[in-house]
């Protein structure tokens, strides 16, 4: 691959403006997963696409400057652990693995449905970071050259 300094100034500026709207939309989709279509998977992919737009506009060096990849990997791994902890709390408080032990609340409210929003947030973190890490790994791997050597 050639020198990746990213795209032109116009693309970089517009990415900087639009990025927060993409993240906000993804967070909205994740938080409203139990009320509207979407949920952890869809919102996670939106956030991953937001990260991907940083990478496309600023190049690989920009991502290495802006983001701490090791921290992202730790956060992504710990979300699985938190999912399991919620499941085990279900055994303790609800009587079954991953039981819905929090009070359900009233229908159509943001704070309702017990553990479903919590699990949605964890899945959203997991999907967003893992898809972004896949892209980082692919960018570092030099696909074509590995086969020839």
């Amino acid at each position: 691959m050639n020198e990746q300094q990213g795209m032109t100034l116009i693309v970089k500026t517009i990415t900087r403006i639009i990025l927060w709207m993409i993240f906000l939309y993804g967070i909205y989709i994740i938080l409203h997963g139990h009320l509207t279509p979407g949920g952890g998977f869809g919102g996670g992919v939106i956030i991953a696409l937001g990260f991907l737009s940083i990478m496309l506009a600023y190049g690989r060096s920009g991502v290495d400057e802006w983001l701490n990849i090791k921290f992202l990997h730790d956060l992504e791994t710990s979300s699985v652990l938190l999912f399991l902890i919620v499941g085990i709390l279900g055994i303790a408080l609800g009587g079954a693995f991953l039981a819905n032990f929090i009070n359900h609340g009233s229908l159509f409210h943001l704070l309702s449905a017990g553990t479903i929003p919590v699990l949605n947030i964890l899945i959203g973190i997991k999907v967003a970071l893992s898809l972004f890490l896949v892209v980082i790994v692919l960018a570092h791997m030099h696909i074509g050259e590995g086969g020839q050597s």
């Binding site: 997963g33 009320l35 279509p37 949920g39 009233s106 309702s112 449905a113 017990g114 479903i116």
Partner: peptide
Amino acid sequence: TGAANLVAS
């Protein structure tokens, strides 16, 4: 489940 979205529930 208390979730309005059936897929999430």
